[in-house]
């Protein structure tokens, strides 16, 4: 059971940041999907719900998704559905159900650096960057590598390029966490191949990306890229699957995602 002694609704980001930094043990609330789990005592909770971070906006060269945008909005908003073939929308569609997705946020999903995360894998494939208040912009990849503390995530920024992307995963049951997930993208001759829930965090597979850049995307190169991914990455065991199994399905997921991209191209 969650216990919160004090909830603060800061009037602006500056105040929010000052609170996070000023009060030890203070916690930023996202959609609370995870914060509520188990028993936990929070002295000071900081609620960003009134700061207008629940918007998805388009700029000349980016799509910006506010930290408090729910996964359901990511799934249904025209801007995210239209982004990179809807890869982000597709990555969240099996997360439990519409009601949970209407509660939990993209900001919470990203800030938590969850290794199994589906949207993180998709965001990695479209070079997402994160804006933290006070600190500025950092690439999602750097953030996942543990650079920077959490502070306050304001938005997730996806550069607009001619992305064609796809997301694949294997799950023991449809609404379970992924045993392994994969997102790939192509923009011109540039490729991204990302594999997550290994079960450790999502990683780009540069060997496969380089191979695709050099050889172009064909049915054959898709297979090879998948093999390269399986060879380059480390896989581990968790209750959802063994490392050995993950290694076996990794090439399949990468290949299938790439073939989807090939089909769409």
């Amino acid at each position: 059971m969650l216990e919160i002694e004090n909830i603060i609704f800061p009037a602006n980001l500056g105040e929010a940041l000052a609170t996070v930094r000023g009060i030890p043990g203070s916690v930023v609330l996202g959609g609370c999907g995870y914060l509520r789990l188990g028993s936990r005592k929070i002295r000071t909770a900081i609620d960003l719900a009134r700061l207008g971070l629940d918007k998805i906006v388009e700029t000349a060269d980016t799509v910006e998704i506010g930290a408090m945008v729910t996964l359901r909005d990511v799934e249904t908003d025209a801007l995210t559905v239209g982004l990179a073939g809807g890869v982000l929308a597709k990555s969240v569609e099996n997360i439990v159900g519409v009601q949970l997705r209407k509660c939990v946020t993209l900001g919470g999903s990203v800030a938590g650096r969850y290794p199994f995360s589906d949207p993180i894998t998709a965001l990695m494939a479209v070079d997402a960057e994160l804006l933290f208040h006070g600190r500025g912009v950092i690439s999602l990849q750097d953030y996942l590598e543990g650079k920077w503390g959490r502070d306050i995530l304001v938005k997730i920024i996806v550069p607009k390029r001619q992305w064609i992307a796809a997301f694949t995963s294997v799950r023991k049951s449809v609404t379970d966490y992924a045993v392994l997930n994969c997102a790939v993208s192509k923009s011109g001759q540039d490729y991204r191949v990302v594999v997550g829930s290994r079960p450790s965090r999502a990683l780009r597979v540069t060997t496969a990306e380089n191979f695709l850049r050099e050889n172009g995307l064909t049915k054959k190169s898709a297979v090879r890229a998948g093999e390269l991914a399986a060879e380059s990455l480390q896989f581990g065991d968790n209750p959802r699957g063994s490392g050995e199994y993950r290694k076996k399905i990794c090439p399949v997921l990468v290949k299938r995602a790439l073939l989807e991209v090939l089909d769409a191209a």
């Binding site: 099996n94 023991k172 049951s173 449809v174 609404t175 379970d176 966490y177 209750p239």
Partner: peptide, 16 residues
Amino acid sequence: LTTNSFMEYKIPSRLD
């Protein structure tokens, strides 16, 4: 017992 929630112990959903 580690399958102590519907996150860890999955029963069929209508999609399964």
